[in-house]
């Protein structure tokens, strides 16, 4: 219930209507969107029960490892109602053609594989919010100071997922496990995304805001 309340509202990409469509424009729009979503996601993390009790250093380490997984999982959940399209924002939906134009066809297809998986499972909002918190708590940073505290956070969130499934999905006793088993693909996809945006950063043709850059650098 706390995670459902903490879930942020959707945000808008607001692409500049005066700039002609191009790969640079699409990537600039996405990087600006990601930067604003990251601010929102840091605010969200503070509402995960147990997260604010971690040391500031451990909160930072988890976010530095897991931020892209959180961004992608949010795009994936928003895209569940559509076919072969990614809802980066309510006013920014990418189809295959736009993905090609932005040079994001491979990355977006990888994200669509996640969408397909969760669609087939009928992922519910309750499951999505817990899974997203688990992705953060389980982001495998090598810099964690208090591993026991992070383990306790993982246990609480894992327990919440199991309790939810035990009361709502009695017919499938393995559903919690099935959901957890989707996380490797999320990790893999996020790593691809980070790699892609790191090379865009190196190119230097797309303006990026400071928080996005800071977190990309934490991954480099």
């Amino acid at each position: 219930s706390l995670l459902l309340v903490a879930e942020p509202e959707g945000i808008f990409a607001m692409p500049d209507p005066t700039v002609p469509e191009s790969d640079i424009k699409a990537l600039t729009t996405l990087c600006d969107l990601a930067d604003r979503e990251l601010v929102v996601n840091i605010g969200w993390a503070k509402h995960i029960p147990g997260f604010p009790s971690l040391s500031l250093a451990d909160q930072m380490s988890l976010l530095q490892s897991g931020w892209m997984e959180i961004l992608i999982l949010r795009v994936v959940f928003r895209s569940l109602a559509l076919e072969d399209k990614l809802v980066y924002a309510e006013d920014y939906i990418m189809d295959e053609e736009q993905s090609k134009l932005a040079g994001l066809l491979d990355l977006n297809n990888a994200i669509l594989q996640l969408v397909k998986k969760y669609k087939a499972m009928g992922l519910e909002k309750e499951e999505f919010v817990v899974l997203k918190a688990i992705a953060l708590a389980n982001s495998d940073s090598i810099q964690i100071e208090d591993l026991e505290a992070v383990q306790r956070l993982q246990d609480v969130l894992h327990g919440a997922l199991q309790d939810y499934e035990a009361t709502h999905r009695l017919e499938d006793p393995r559903r919690a496990g099935k959901l957890i088993m989707t996380l490797p693909l999320l990790r893999q996809t996020a790593a691809r995304a980070v790699q892609h945006f790191c090379s865009i950063k190196q190119d230097g043709r797309v303006p990026m805001h400071k928080l996005f850059l800071e977190l990309l650098e934490a991954k480099a």
């Binding site: 601010v39 840091i42 605010g43 503070k46 500031l56 250093a57 909160q59 930072m60 976010l63 530095q64 400071k210 928080l211 800071e214 977190l215 650098e217 934490a218």
Partner: peptide
Amino acid sequence: KEKHKILHQLLQNST
């Protein structure tokens, strides 16, 4: 940690 100023600030803000 110096390198991650913005994340640090955002986490410290009470909002």
